[in-house]
Every structure is written in structure tokens, then in C-alpha cells.
């Protein structure tokens, strides 16, 4: 999964910039509330659980399981031509949050709900590191 056909790269925002910066430094961290300890992903400015602005970025194990997945088989946009099929997965991290991602080493026909996976950081361009996953 080195080629990223026409997929936009993430544009960090005020509330999400630390997520991407930690990845660039080689670490997967997820936003958590300092007051009620609820995880929030995608990150927010305010805790949707308790209303606090006090957020922290906690390292997570990177372990998880495939919670759901789709396989794009038809090039529904011209920029996908020659790059299908590809699978997109939602991984449920051991700590609870759900992350949308791709698998680096699993053929699309072998992707299954429940597949155990581990994070694999992959650079995409000079500035961006993406949290992809590999089979455990």
C-alpha cells in the first residue's frame, strides 16, 4: 500500500494537529479527556462527554481488530484508475477508539471482521505519516 491513488493527504486543523505531529515523530497517540478520561477520535476541541477543554494525547498500544471494512472494486473516480481493488478498514483499538485505515500486508479477499492487527506507521510525502495496520 505504498501508492496512494488520488487520495487526499490529511490537512491538520487546530484540534487535530498534535495527532499528525506525534505520528511524524513515530508515535500513535489518541486524544483523551483529562477530566473524565473519555477518548475522542477524531479529536475535538471540547470533550463531548463532559464539556472540558482540557485534553491530553495518550500513547496507545497500536493493537486492535478489524471492526468493519469495504473493498473498493470499481474506480468510481477517474483518479482511482489502475488502483482498484483496495480495502479500507475501521480498526477498533484495544483501548476502544475506532480508526479508519488501510492494511499494508493483507490481500483484499482475506480481510475479515475480527482480524487482529497492529499499527504500522507509513510515510506519505515529506510531511505526513499515516497510521496504517498490518496483520498480527
Amino acid at each position: 500500500m505504498s501508492a496512494r491513488p488520488g487520495f487526499p493527504l490529511p490537512v491538520p486543523s487546530e484540534d487535530s494537529a498534535p495527532f499528525w505531529e506525534y505520528l511524524r515523530q513515530g508515535e500513535l497517540r489518541v486524544q483523551r479527556c483529562l477530566v473524565c478520561t473519555a477518548f475522542a477520535h477524531p479529536p475535538r476541541l471540547m470533550c463531548p462527554n463532559c464539556g472540558s477543554f482540557d485534553r491530553e494525547w495518550v500513547p496507545v498500544s497500536g493493537r486492535g481488530t478489524v471492526y468493519s471494512y469495504v473493498v473498493t472494486r470499481q474506480a468510481i473516480h477517474p483518479s482511482f484508475e489502475g488502483h482498484t481493488p483496495y480495502a479500507t478498514v475501521v480498526v477498533e483499538l484495544a483501548e476502544g477508539p475506532l480508526l479508519t485505515s488501510n492494511l499494508v500486508d493483507v490481500p483484499v479477499d482475506e480481510v475479515r471482521v475480527g482480524l487482529p492487527v497492529m499499527v504500522a506507521l507509513v510515510t506519505a510525502g515529506d510531511e505526513v505519516t499515516l497510521p496504517l495496520f498490518r496483520r498480527m
Binding site: 496512494r4 491513488p5 487520495f7 487526499p8 493527504l9 490529511p10 490537512v11 491538520p12 486543523s13 487535530s16 499528525w20 477520535h41 477524531p42 469495504v70 473498493t72 468510481i76 473516480h77 483496495y86 479500507t88 480508526l99 479508519t100 485505515s101 488501510n102 506519505a124 505526513v128 499515516l130
Partner: peptide
């Protein structure tokens, strides 16, 4: 184009 919450989906091919 990868902005906002789409930063967490579109880069992985979840585009539509």
C-alpha cells in the same frame, strides 16, 4: 480534500 473530520477518512480511500 482531507480537511476537517475528512482528514481521518479520505487519506485511506474513504472518499464518497
Amino acid at each position: 480534500r482531507g480537511q476537517g473530520a475528512a482528514a481521518f477518512t479520505e487519506p485511506f480511500g474513504l472518499l464518497t
